[in-house]
Structures are given as structure tokens and as C-alpha cells.
Design a protein around this nucleic acid. Structure first.
Length: 565
RNA sequence: UGGGGCGUCGUCAAGUGGCUAAGACACUGGAUUUUGAUUCCAGCAUUCGGAGGUUCGAGUCCUCCCGCCCCAGCCA
């Protein structure tokens, strides 16, 4: 169904280089870590992975591959109230689908809860941490502001023995949620807010998806992340820009503990035009049922793209092309579409499907005759061979391929005009049949026998070639057309109802597809000639009754010409 | 506002003082085409947020200014 490595075998494929790549090269040259390269991808299992994560996955696993190193998959599961097992399953599946392998190195921050607790005790004993009784609101007040220093908590100088006792009782479950926290004792006047006695542990009487009820105190990100990196022997801990201000604290924890010290590097997170990538908004789309789940084909999640028909290779290619830098940026959605089409053009078999049918009758074609015509499967891939498609007196063409009163550059069918039917004959439109409401119901045409596909055209030339399907042989099914979920170019900057595209989903009930498509398997991809790339939906297709999703339309310069007028 | 970052073509992005500032996407022509697709060919930053300065030479170094992003969770 999917060959995750097909594209990277391209001889023209160039391994991406970026500032982190260079840092690693320099580190190796300087003999750091004995030349070892070990990265990690550390998602919190509180939602599905999206294409922004794909950038991080490609970076971390890609760097490890390029330098002959390793990359761990680590679930950063320190907040049980937000995390679920469903999310760890989907994350594993998505990373795998993207084509990366973490072998037996699947870890969890929760694996280290015991060690983290011991380290916290060491910190208390060293007089570098204390138990805080202040409420969350009070802590905020004491913290000061961006421009004013904070002030010390009245509990800051609690004796070590008292801290040890209180922290042990926190762990035992003697206090309710929010009653106490453990704080590092650093500097309440630091210009870096993260240094103003950061909270290390909070009390959460919550069921953890892995440790169950074993713990009721949980470490904060800052107390868990660096140490997890250290324990796993990570050499380069790569994260996004918003963690930059946490780096001094990352370093402080490791140095204070005196343990192995990985180095943190930050890069700019991905933004794409017309796409929402904030977890909060993605969750909102799902919970408010604006979309049908995390894998709705309109979602920018890995599972959404997969169901939409994107290939892993196209997503990886995209991640390689966008680069890795420290400047905030928004990548044009057109680049993702380009990567997709570039691959699908080479690999997707061509078939014919009429999505909005208009019946035509060839008045000079014998009533009972059926011809089997030869059609190539993929002009980009001659070895893909050809197949037979039935041709008969009654056919369907696309409604938009006929105009009663066409503009000058319209190359398709019109009264008295001729076009070629792909793989078949040139036809001429002689009569337009309408119902009482004046709507076109049928076209009566003649076919020109000498113009059969493959033969000399009997001196005829036509500008247009249309796709078609034989009416009595057609496989009728549902096809879904998808468009951007948002009509705003930067929807992350606008609250949700306002930015939505009301036409992001169009369900077409009675599409007419060439008969071979009846046997398409769930997950099979095709190019519907002139209409775009489609995939047999993995969830809603039945054996012998596939339903199709449009992955993306073909480039359409005619539409652009029309728009210009 | 204190701190931390970032500003090179419409969009990403190379560039680490010295050939006429890579490449890709997008866009604009034109050729081929039984997909208005694909493919091909051509065009597309005298200038690097701005102003000064150092230098034989500056996108790259210095100074000042401007703009944008991140931080005041017991989220990550």
C-alpha cells in the first residue's frame, strides 16, 4: 500500500544540510561524545501527530541516519490528566508510517519517575529545592512580572529535614491536589522567568496511562526532560524555539545533579499557509465535531494526510525541502502539493472517472455494440502496461466539459464542435436535449469511425480531449472532494469559526467510474484522468465497493485563465 | 516594559570579509502533448530591515535605529 522509501532512492536526492547538521559535524570533528550521535523524538501523548511533528521526526531520525547514530522514540508523559493510551498507539503508527524505525528504543519519561524522585531528594538535601505551601495564584504574584523582580516565598528557607518530610508526605498522598509543590531554589530576581524558583513537582491524584495509581506527584517538563535525555545518552536534544528560554534551566538541572549533559538546540516550528497547526485548535476541531475525528482527510495530522492519500515519501520530501532554521516562517501550501504531485505523477495508475455526469448518446453507433479499447496505465511508466475499457453507444462525460455558449478559448465540447474521447474516437455534438426546466439532460453526438485511437486521425485535429465512461458499464460510487479546511491564509491567527472554509468537503453521490475501479483495494491510489489524484478510502470502502477521496486536483492552468477572464 | 531570539526574491532558504547573491516552490512567457496534466526551454533580488562606520573589498565585522516572534502554567 505504501513504500516508505521509494523517493529517497532517487539519485538526485540530496541529504539536507542545516545549522544543526553543521553543529554535529563540528562536534564529531572535535571528538565530542566519542563521535556518537544520538537524538530523540519526544512527543507528549496528548493528541495526534501533525505535519509539524513530521518536520521534527524527519530532522531527528534523519540526522541519526546521516551520521550513523540512533534516534529514540520517547513519550513525554509527565502530565496524566492530558495523556491517553490511544495517543501513544497513533503516534507509534504515524512515525512508522513515515518510514522511521526506533528499534527497541521506545521510552517513556514515566520510566524515570523513580530516578527523578531520587534526584529531587538529592536536590533538597543540597538545599537547592523546597516544598512550597503557597497557592498557584500566590506563586504567580510572588513571581513578579517581565519588568519587575519577584520576591522570595516565606517557605523558601524551610529546613532540609522539613522539606524532606513534606516531600515524602506529598508522595504518600497526604495532601490534596494543589496544596503543595516542590520548587527549585534559584533566583527570584532572574530576568529569565524560568529561573524564578520553577516548580519541579506538583500533586496530581490522577490515573496515569502507564503507572496507574502508583504516583500522585508528577515531575514538570523542566525536571523531566533534560534528565530523560541524560539517562538515554542523548547527544543532541533538538526542540522548537519556544524552549529556548528553558535551555539555561535544562543546563542548571543537569549541572546541579552532576550527570551526563546533552546539549539542547532549537529550531523554528513549521507553519503552512491555510493550515492550523496549534494543538489547541486541532483538538477543538475534533471535540466540536467540525471534522470527523483526528484522521479526517482535511486534518493536517499525519493520519489525516494518510487517509487523504498523501504518501510518506512526499511528506518526507517536503520536510527536506523546507529546511531547518531559526527564523519564524510560513511555508506555502503549494510546496507540499508540489511534492505530492511530483511523486503521484510518477506512480499513480491512470483511470477514467466522471464525477458530475452528463449523458451523451452516439446516434451513429450501433445499439448493441461494445468495443474493448486499449488504455495505457501510466505514460510515465511504460512497463505498467495497458488495460481494456469498454466503449458503447451511451457514455458519460463531465458536465463542465460541455458549454452551450462557450468562450473563445474553450477547447471542450459545444454544439457543432468536435473533441476527442481519450483512448477512443473524435465525436461531434449535434443536438442538446433539455427538460421542461430548460436544464441540459443529454447530448446527441456522432462519432467518427476513422479517428479510432491509435490510427491516423483521418486528417482531423481537435484541441480538446475528454475523459468518459461507458454508461451501461459504469461503476457508480461516492467520491469526496476536499478543499482547504480554512479560507484564511494564516488561520492560526484567527479564532475558529471565523476562519473556516464552508466548502472544504463536497460529497458526490453518483459518480461514474470505469469498471476496473470496482476492484480497487482500500488504500489504492489513482490518477483520475484530468480530475486529480484519488485514493480508495481506507475506512469506508467495502470489498468490491470502494469509495474514493480526492487527494489533490491536478494543476489547472485553464481554471487560472478563466479566472482572469 | 526585563530577558531571549529573528529579519537575504511573492514563499521557504544557501551564504561564516574577495568570482556577476545558490537552489526550490510560486509566478510569467514559449515549445511538445490523445490528460488545458506531465516534460522541455526562457525570464524572475545592481541587492541582503534602515542609517552610519571599519576595510583595497561587507549580506557577512562595529555602532545606532526600526520591525517581528517567545517567556509572567502547579502545560509540554
Amino acid at each position: 500500500m505504501n513504500d516508505p522509501k521509494s523517493k529517497s532512492e532517487d539519485e538526485e536526492h540530496v541529504a539536507p544540510t542545516n545549522f544543526i547538521h553543521k553543529i554535529i559535524e563540528e562536534d564529531i570533528a572535535a571528538g565530542k561524545n566519542d563521535g556518537r550521535v544520538h537524538t530523540r523524538f519526544p512527543p507528549e501523548p496528548n493528541g495526534y501527530l501533525h505535519i509539524g511533528h513530521a518536520k521534527s521526526i524527519c530532522l531527528n531520525f534523519g540526522l541519526a541516519e546521516q551520521f550513523g547514530g540512533k534516534c529514540n522514540l520517547r513519550f513525554d508523559d509527565t502530565n496524566p490528566v492530558k495523556e491517553e493510551e490511544e495517543f501513544v498507539h497513533s503516534i507509534r503508527e504515524d512515525v512508522k508510517w513515515l518510514g522511521f524505525d526506533w528499534a527497541d528504543r521506545e521510552f517513556y519519561a514515566s520510566d524515570y519517575f523513580g530516578q527523578l524522585y531520587e534526584w529531587a531528594i538529592k536536590l533538597i538535601k543540597d538545599g537547592k529545592a523546597y516544598v512550597e505551601d503557597l497557592s498557584a495564584d500566590e506563586i504567580r504574584e510572588y513571581r513578579g512580572t517581565l519588568s519587575e523582580p519577584g520576591k522570595n516565598s516565606p517557605h523558601r528557607d524551610r529546613p532540609v529535614e522539613e522539606n524532606l518530610d513534606l516531600f515524602a508526605r506529598m508522595k504518600k498522598g497526604e495532601f490534596p491536589d494543589g496544596a503543595k509543590v516542590l520548587r527549585a531554589k534559584i533566583d527570584m530576581a532572574s530576568p529569565n522567568l524560568n529561573f524564578r524558583d520553577p516548580v519541579l513537582y506538583r500533586i496530581l491524584h490522577a490515573e496515569h496511562h502507564r503507572t496507574g495509581g502508583e504516583w500522585c506527584i508528577y515531575p514538570m517538563y523542566d525536571w523531566a526532560h533534560g534528565q530523560s535525555d541524560s539517562i538515554e545518552g542523548i547527544t543532541h536534544s533538538i526542540c522548537t524555539l519556544e524552549f529556548e528560554d528553558h535551555r539555561p534551566l535544562y543546563d542548571w538541572c543537569l549541572d546541579t545533579l552532576g550527570v551526563y549533559h546533552p546539549r539542547q538546540y532549537e529550531f523554528a516550528r513549521l507553519n503552512i499557509t491555510y493550515t492550523v497547526l496549534s494543538k489547541r485548535k486541532l483538538l477543538q476541531l475534533v471535540t466540536e465535531k467540525i471534522v470527523n475525528g483526528w484522521d479526517d482527510p482535511r486534518m493536517p495530522t499525519i493520519s489525516g494526510f494518510r487517509r487523504r492519500g498523501f504518501t510518506a515519501a512526499a511528506i518526507r520530501d517536503f520536510c527536506d525541502r523546507i529546511g531547518v532554521a531559526r527564523a519564524n516562517s510560513t511555508v506555502d501550501l503549494a510546496l507540499l502539493e508540489f511534492c505530492l504531485r511530483e511523486e503521484l505523477n510518477k506512480t499513480a495508475p491512470r483511470v477514467m472517472a466522471v464525477l458530475k455526469p452528463l449523458k451523451i448518446v452516439l446516434t451513429n453507433y450501433p445499439e448493441d455494440q461494445v468495443e474493448q479499447l486499449e488504455a495505457e496505465n501510466n505514460p510515465e511508466q511504460p512497463e505498467a502496461g495497458s488495460r481494456q475499457i469498454p466503449f458503447s453507444r451511451e457514455l458519460y462525460i463531465e458536465q463542465e466539459d460541455f458549454m452551450e455558449d462557450p468562450p473563445k478559448k474553450f477547447f471542450r465540447l459545444a454544439p457543432g464542435k468536435e473533441v476527442r474521447l481519450k483512448h477512443a474516437y473524435i465525436i461531434k455534438c449535434e443536438e442538446v436535449v433539455k427538460n421542461d426546466a430548460g436544464e441540459i439532460t443529454e447530448l446527441r453526438c456522432v462519432y467518427i469511425p476513422e479517428t479510432k485511437s491509435g490510427q491516423a486521425n483521418a486528417g482531423m485535429k481537435v484541441k480538446g480531449t475528454l475523459h468518459w465512461v461507458s454508461a451501461p458499464h459504469a461503476y457508480e460510487t461516492q467520491v469526496r472532494l476536499y478543499d482547504n479546511l480554512f479560507s484564511e491564509i494564516e488561520p492560526d491567527k484567527i479564532e475558529i469559526p471565523g476562519s473556516l472554509n464552508p466548502n472544504s468537503l463536497e460529497v458526490l453521490a453518483d459518480c461514474k467510474l470505469e469498471p476496473s475501479l470496482k476492484d480497487a483495494k482500500a488504500g489504492d491510489r489513482f490518477q483520475f484522468l484530468r480530475m486529480g489524484y484519488f485514493i480508495a478510502d481506507v475506512k469506508d470502502s467495502q470489498p468490491g465497493a470502494p469509495i474514493f477521496n480526492r487527494t489533490t486536483p491536478l494543476r489547472d492552468t485553464w481554471a487560472k485563465v478563466q479566472k482572469k477572464g
